[in-house]
Design a protein around this nucleic acid. Structure first.
Lengths: 251, 251
DNA sequence: CGCTATTTTGAAAGGGCTCAAGAGTAGTGG
DNA sequence: CCACTACTCTTGAGCCCTTTCAAAATAGCG
């Protein structure tokens, strides 16, 4: 699956001081940039996994199509992310550009050899795989036990944290994906996503900056958004020592 | 998270011919066996991830407790599985024995060094991480778009495939986990799990071998079980070339 | 400006949840 | 061996959130 870009940023930076090829980004930087138009596919589920990709610019969706036509989006890729590492023979999902996108590619064989040879690259790859695993597991928790509102808020919160981490002071988010994409990612219908956003606007938590641009959402009350997202980062401690039985809510 | 045991079995076997330490199992085999009683914890979410474990015998559940007390089981561990690899500082989940269990442990530091040093171990670790990632993603698909019946059937089917892979000819499954465990794993309530099993018995798909032993379930119609599980291994091809728009069902 | 795709809104139906009680199963100790 | 208790599992009834089906409103674009 995809690998988060904000993984071990310090390590990347350190390595870059010495030799560019000693960081994953450096490894890709020598490759030519390729352009993807909106809706264009990078690869398909089931294809032989011949390349590893770095997203230079833009956004992609990662998804599977089920036998009955339903689509499940398992993640989004943003600038700096790397796809195609934790795979064997074949891609387990399709990848498609949802905005005009720039990518670089490296043959898996080349990539694997470079990683096997470099003591700097291995920890970086490992770190990204760990982040990816953590992200999928969070998504698993979201899907197995959160309400529509909690799901939406969790999603928006993650996007918000992304832009804040990128140094953006404004709390206005650009949602490059459609409502249908959000629905397929959050395990909801497009109608529920739409209704839930309307409800959040009603509560004053978020707002559309300009009714014309529904893909720009301003987070008015980040604190409340985090509240509604539900995961007060779980609470493992309550479980420790004393098995607090009995008062399990829902599910 | 956990790592599936049937990963790259041939590679493991090959390495074992030469030197035992050149396979992951060999690496653990020198460690003393530790015993866990039913309900005993191996580690807690949030704990410093100091060890990597191999399950020698028994079954464990991997889970998180949410702030409102709900429990999400993200996986089960069986004999041969390895836990604690794809992690950074801390465990992202708790692990608890659901049957009497035997495990071996290795310090992460030792483990990481052994893997970094050995050209045989690295591919095996990589392979297991890939399998783990694929499993989590399948679970993600299950949770985001399957009905209660489909979830149950998918779960039973996976267990069936496990026992068949282990060379068992009988289609009777032992379910070491409680109904509540299954519910927390499948994103359902215990009542829905119970009702769905009753429904499957009514359809003649499965049966309880002996009403006294509800943890032993015989699969009477494996074919029908696979049907009801829903994932005719998805269908990526229908999507290729021609973007078949429009007739997306549900969600 | 007209056409199409996307999004929103409404009303009704349904699947799974909640609450509540009953039925088995085990374990304990007299 | 049989209460007695504690659990797990099953079953029932009603409700609620999300889905489904349908249509209107809004944006995007040639």
């Amino acid at each position: 699956m995809f690998l988060s870009s904000y993984a071990n940023a310090h390590q990347v930076a350190k390595a870059a001081l010495f030799k560019e090829a000693e960081s994953l980004h450096g490894l890709f930087s020598r490759q030519p940039i390729e352009h993807l138009a909106v809706g264009q596919s990078l690869f398909f589920e089931g294809d032989e996994a011949k390349h590893v990709f770095e997203v230079v610019e833009g956004t992609l969706r990662i998804f599977r199509i089920l036998s009955d036509g339903r689509r499940v989006i398992t993640g989004f890729l943003y600038a700096g992310d790397i796809v195609g590492v934790s795979l064997k023979e074949r891609y387990l999902y399709s990848a498609e550009a949802i905005t005009p996108t720039k990518i670089r590619r490296i043959a898996r064989k080349t990539f694997d050899e470079a990683v096997a040879d470099s003591d700097d690259l291995r920890p970086e790859v490992f770190s990204r795989v760990c982040d990816e695993m953590a992200a999928v597991q969070d998504q698993l928790v979201l899907l197995s036990s959160k309400t529509a509102e909690e799901r939406l808020c969790t999603f928006l919160l993650k996007l918000l944290q992304r832009t804040i981490a990128a140094g953006n002071r404004d709390t206005t988010l650009e949602l490059p994906m459609t409502r249908q994409d959000m629905a397929d990612y959050l395990g909801l219908t497009i109608e529920t996503v739409s209704r839930t956003i309307t409800k959040l606007i009603g509560k004053g938590v978020v707002n559309v900056v300009n009714p014309a641009a529904r893909h720009f959402i301003k987070i008015e009350k980040p604190g409340m958004l985090a509240q509604l997202a539900g995961d007060d980062s779980e609470c493992p401690e309550m479980h420790r020592d004393l098995m607090v039985q009995g008062d399990r809510r829902r599910h």
